[in-house]
Measured scan of single mutants.
Amino acid sequence: AQEYRALYDYTAQNPDELDLSAGDILEVILEGEDGWWTVERNGQRGFVPGSYLEKL
């Protein structure tokens, strides 16, 4: 798994998404072809927009 940093804040719109704060460090589990990536942070897993992340 790769570590990424959130570039922007994101507020989850659905229960299966995660909130992001700019600067958060996340582990990317799966890069979805639809642009939604499965990530894990502090034991929580959910979808976030891949375009909001940069690889560390």
Rank of each mutant, 00 (worst) to 15 (best):
Q2N: 14
E3Y: 15
E3W: 06
E3L: 10
E3S: 09
Y4F: 09
Y4N: 04
R5V: 11
A6H: 00
Y8F: 13
D9V: 02
D9C: 07
Y10W: 07
Y10V: 00
Y10R: 08
Y10D: 02
T11W: 06
T11M: 10
T11C: 12
A12P: 07
Q13D: 09
Q13L: 09
Q13H: 10
N14S: 12
P15C: 10
P15A: 12
P15H: 11
P15K: 12
D16L: 09
E17R: 02
E17H: 09
L18N: 01
D19E: 07
D19N: 12
D19Y: 04
L20M: 14
L20P: 00
L20D: 01
S21W: 09
S21Q: 15
A22V: 12
A22N: 06
G23A: 02
G23R: 01
I25S: 08
L26D: 02
V28T: 04
I29R: 06
I29H: 06
I29Q: 07
I29F: 10
L30A: 14
E31N: 06
E31V: 14
E31K: 12
E31I: 15
G32N: 13
E33Y: 08
E33T: 13
E33K: 13
E33H: 12
D34N: 15
D34Q: 09
D34Y: 05
G35Q: 07
G35T: 04
G35K: 06
W36R: 15
W37F: 11
W37A: 09
T38K: 15
T38L: 13
T38C: 10
T38P: 03
V39G: 04
E40W: 04
E40T: 13
R41S: 13
R41C: 07
R41H: 11
N42S: 13
N42V: 06
G43R: 07
Q44L: 13
Q44M: 09
G46R: 03
F47N: 13
F47Y: 14
V48I: 04
V48P: 01
V48E: 01
P49E: 02
S51D: 13
L53S: 08
E54R: 07
E54K: 06
E54H: 07
E54S: 08
E54V: 06
E54W: 04
K55N: 08
L56I: 15
L56W: 08
